[in-house]
Design a protein around this nucleic acid. Structure first.
Lengths: 261, 261
DNA sequence: ACCTGAACACCGTTCAAGT
DNA sequence: ACCTGAACACCGTTCAAGT
C-alpha cells in the first residue's frame, strides 16, 4: 500500500480527517479476524470518539455479538494497544544523516503528529502506552540512531526521544480538546452535525482574553493573539524548534553548551 | 559555560506519596459540601486509581447515595476539573527576576511535578484539561511573566508555557504507567498489597533490552541503562534542561541562536 | 472452531418521593 | 433544602450452550 507520508518535508495541512473509505464492500460474512476487529474499532473511534468506543459498539459495527470479540482480542486494553501499534505499522524513519539531523527530526515529529491527527482522540490512546513492544521498538531504535549520529551525548540522547514524543502527543491531545470543545459548541442543537467552526471558537477565546482585567493579566492579553489565533502548524513548529535548539546546544561543535559527555 | 549539572539546587525527593492524613475525625454527619465531595474523590483516587474512581465509590466514601453528589457537583467531569483546580490551589509562582529566570523555571517545573505526583494518576487528569479557567489563569499569567521578563520574543513566550506544562504532565504520566505496571506485577497474588518494587522492574526491563538482537538494536542496548536505571529525578531534570537551553537560545544576548523575533 | 445468549458486577445520570 | 430509592441506558468480561 505504500503510504510513505512518513518523511515528506511538505507542510501537512492538518485538520483533514483522512476519511477511512476502505473497501467497505461486503461487511457480510467475511470471517472475523483480529485485523477486522481493529479496523472496526477505528471506524467507531472516528465516529464516536474514545469515550464512545465500547466493545459493544465495535461488535455492532461488525454485526456480531460482544462476546465474539474476545476470541480475537483479549481485552479492551489489548484492542487499544493494537490500534496504537497499527497506527505506526508502516512508519519509516530514515537512515541517519548527521548533517541533516535537525531536518530529519522535524520530519519525524511532523509525521507522528499527522498520524495522530488521522484518527480522532488518537493522542489520548497514544499517551497511555509506552512503545516498548516488539512492533514499536524498531522505531525507538531508529530515533535513537538519529540522536547519536548527530553527536549528542548519551545522557541527552536517552531522554531526547521521550521528550519529543511527549511533546507531539501532548500537543495533539490539546488540539483534540479544542476540537471537541468547538464541535460540542457548534453542534449544540444537532450534536451529530458538529461542525468544528474553528474561527468562531478562536474569536470567542480572543474575546474572553480581551475581557480580562488589564491590570491583572497584561501578559496573557498581550500574547493571547499568538496563543489562540496562530495556526496550529506554526505553533507546533515553534515548540519543536525550541526543543531542537536545546538539543543542538549539546553538540560539541556548538558554542552554546559544553559537550560534557 | 555551564556544565550539565546546572540543575541541583534542591532535590525534591519524589515518590513520597504525601499521605492525606487529614482530620478524618467524624465522617459522621458533617453536612455534605462541594469541598467534602472533592476530598472524598481524592481519597478514592489514591486508593483505586483513576479507573476505579466512580461516583458510586465517592458516595460510598461519604456514606451517602450516589444521587446526593449531584446536588454539589454537576457531573463527573466537573468533579475531575475541581480536583485539578484544587491541586494547584495555593500554588505560587514568584515575581519574575530576569537574572534568575532559568532557576525560577526549574523550580516551577519541579513543583508542578511534585504536585502531580502527590496523588495517583493526577497527571492523567491534568492532561485532559486546559488551564483557562478563572482559578488557573493567574498561574498561566505568572508563568508568561517569567518568560517575558527573561527577554524571550513573544512568539516563543507564547509557546513556552504549553511546552513546559506538556513536558511535566507527560513525564509524570509515564512515571505513573511504570508504577502501575510494577505494582500490578508485584501484587499478582495479592493485588491489594501491591508493593511497587521499582528495582526489580528496572532489572527486568534491563534484561529485556539486553536480550534484544545486538545487530538490530545497538543504540537501544547502549542507552538502556540510562533509560531505565537512571533516577527519575535526573531524567526529569535532563529533559527540562534541554527545553531551558532551547529557550535560552532565543535570548538576544545569547550567541547560540538568532533572536529571530 | 467459532459464535450466541444470558448473566454478573459494575457504570453516569435523572427524578419522583420522602423527611 | 437536602437526601433516598429506584430506574434507565449503558459498560467490560465470562461462560455454558449451540452449530
Amino acid at each position: 500500500m505504500a503510504a510513505d507520508d512518513t518523511t515528506a518535508p511538505v507542510p501537512p495541512s492538518p485538520w483533514e480527517r483522512e476519511r477511512p473509505a476502505r473497501d467497505r464492500v461486503s461487511t457480510a460474512r467475511a470471517p472475523l479476524t483480529r485485523e477486522r476487529v481493529v479496523e472496526a474499532a477505528f471506524t467507531v473511534l472516528d465516529r464516536q470518539g474514545l469515550d464512545g468506543l465500547s466493545m459493544r459498539q465495535v461488535a455492532g459495527e461488525l454485526g456480531v455479538t460482544v462476546s465474539a470479540l474476545y476470541a480475537h482480542v483479549s481485552s479492551k486494553d489489548d484492542l487499544l494497544e493494537l490500534m496504537y501499534t497499527r497506527l505506526f505499522d508502516d512508519f519509516a524513519i530514515p537512515e541517519p544523516d548527521r548533517e541533516r539531523w535537525e531536518e530529519q527530526l522535524r520530519d519525524f515529529a511532523r509525521s507522528v503528529r499527522r498520524r495522530l491527527l488521522s484518527h480522532r482522540d488518537m493522542a489520548r490512546i497514544s499517551m497511555g502506552h509506552v512503545p516498548f513492544t516488539a512492533e514499536l521498538l524498531p522505531h525507538v531504535e531508529s530515533l535513537l540512531a538519529l540522536f547519536r549520529a548527530a553527536g549528542l551525548p548519551d545522557r541527552i540522547a536517552a531522554e531526547a526521544g521521550d521528550l519529543i514524543s511527549t511533546y507531539v502527543d501532548g500537543f495533539v491531545l490539546e488540539e483534540g480538546i479544542w476540537q471537541d470543545r468547538a464541535a460540542r459548541q457548534a453542534g449544540d442543537d444537532d450534536p451529530s452535525l458538529s461542525r468544528p467552526d474553528w474561527r468562531e471558537m478562536a474569536g470567542e477565546m480572543q474575546d474572553y482574553f480581551a475581557a480580562l482585567p488589564a491590570a491583572d493579566f497584561p501578559h496573557l492579553r498581550a500574547l493571547s493573539g499568538l496563543m489562540v489565533m496562530d495556526s496550529s502548524d506554526d505553533r507546533f513548529d515553534i515548540g519543536l524548534e525550541i526543543i531542537l535548539r536545546g538539543l543542538a546546544s549539546y553538540l560539541p561543535d556548538q558554542g552554546a553548551g559544553a559537550p560534557d559527555a
